[in-house]
């Protein structure tokens, strides 16, 4: 699945046009879990809907197995199923089983042919007991699971999930993340999920694209992205202020040097290129005769990486 220079503009009545997606490009490989990350209103849902063929785009192209979702939408839909807007896309007045039969049916698959797959998916998602329960009577998390099972019933190769963990409690969200990993691994499905939950991306995705205000902020593997800002960061807490000449020498070694005065101590936030530089810094601190309280490595999690990137865009520090 390829998204090339995608652009979506909404015409606003009496107002300026609103560019929801601006020149976004990425490709998702077979069997990969790909994250589309961004804050609320970043353009994630618009991107997903363009991929589904539910939203007409103004420029660029979306190709699903080589089929343009603008020109040959029906052919592209042979390979895609989606869960959009949480769990609104299912019939709440019907039971879990009835929903599964219905969605398989409207995709042209006979009820009898999906029996085995229904059983398998309900077991996999621990929904066997809820099989004959009307969806309306299920918890939010269960409804979300049902929506995902429905997207899998037709056994299409690409699954699009728009905010799959939205509104779920911690336990259910973790449960779902585990399930998504299992599906991608066991069934070889290609999954594109949009979320603003960094935990989901960190734990499930292989690669991701971060978008903000419709533009690509970052596009890389989760691992690389974390490395990007995870240079060697240390927090050093000293009893007193380091003498000026020592401070000057440390500054020459470090990439970043920040001093902060606390009530009864001084905190130094430093970033170095090479971890071996730390030996030199420690020697300098030793000769400064200032008492060392603590030294710790500070690692960013993806949330901080994301916040830094998004902040960067707002300050025009990072361009797409």
């Amino acid at each position: 699945m390829k998204v090339e220079s995608l652009k979506k503009v909404y015409s606003m009545k009496g107002k300026k046009e609103f560019i929801a997606v601006n020149d976004v490009s990425f490709a998702v490989n077979k069997g990969e879990i790909f994250g589309l990350l961004g804050p609320n209103g970043a353009g994630k849902t618009s991107t997903i809907k363009c991929i589904c063929g539910l939203l007409q785009y103004d420029a660029g192209e979306v190709l699903v197995k080589g089929h343009s979702m603008q020109r040959s939408r029906t052919k592209g839909l042979n390979h895609i199923s989606a869960v959009l807007e949480g769990n609104r896309n299912i019939y709440w007045r019907m039971t879990v089983e009835e929903n599964l039969e219905f969605f398989a049916g409207i995709n042209g698959i006979a009820s009898g042919k999906t029996k085995q797959r229904r059983d398998y998916l309900l077991k996999q998602f621990q929904l066997e007991e809820q099989r004959n329960v009307v969806v309306n009577n299920l918890s939010r998390g269960m409804k979300q699971k049902v929506a995902i099972v429905i997207s899998l019933i037709t056994d299409k190769s690409i699954i699009l999930l728009d905010e799959p963990t939205l509104g779920l409690d911690v336990g259910m969200s973790q449960d779902l993340r585990q399930l998504l990993r299992t599906i991608a691994k066991e069934e070889g499905k290609t999954i594109l999920l949009s979320t603003h939950d960094m935990k989901v991306v960190e734990e499930t995705c292989d690669r991701l694209v971060i978008i903000n205000q419709g533009k690509t902020v970052a596009h890389d593997t989760v691992e690389n992205l974390m490395k990007l800002t995870n240079q060697h960061n240390y927090r050093i807490q000293m009893k007193d202020c380091i003498p000026a000449e020592i401070k000057q020498k440390i500054k020459q070694i470090t990439v970043k040097f920040n001093e902060q005065k606390n009530d009864s101590s001084f905190t130094y936030q430093i970033t170095i290129h090479n971890p071996n530089d730390l030996f030199e810094i420690m020697n300098l601190l030793k000769i400064s005769n200032v008492e060392l309280i603590s030294l710790e490595r500070t690692n960013y999690d993806l949330e901080e990486v994301f916040m830094n990137l998004v902040k960067g865009v707002e300050k025009n520090e990072i361009s797409s």
Binding site: L54, L77, L84, I90, I106
Partner: peptide, 8 residues
Amino acid sequence: EQLYMTEI
């Protein structure tokens, strides 16, 4: 939207 997501 789900009804529009089928090949039918």
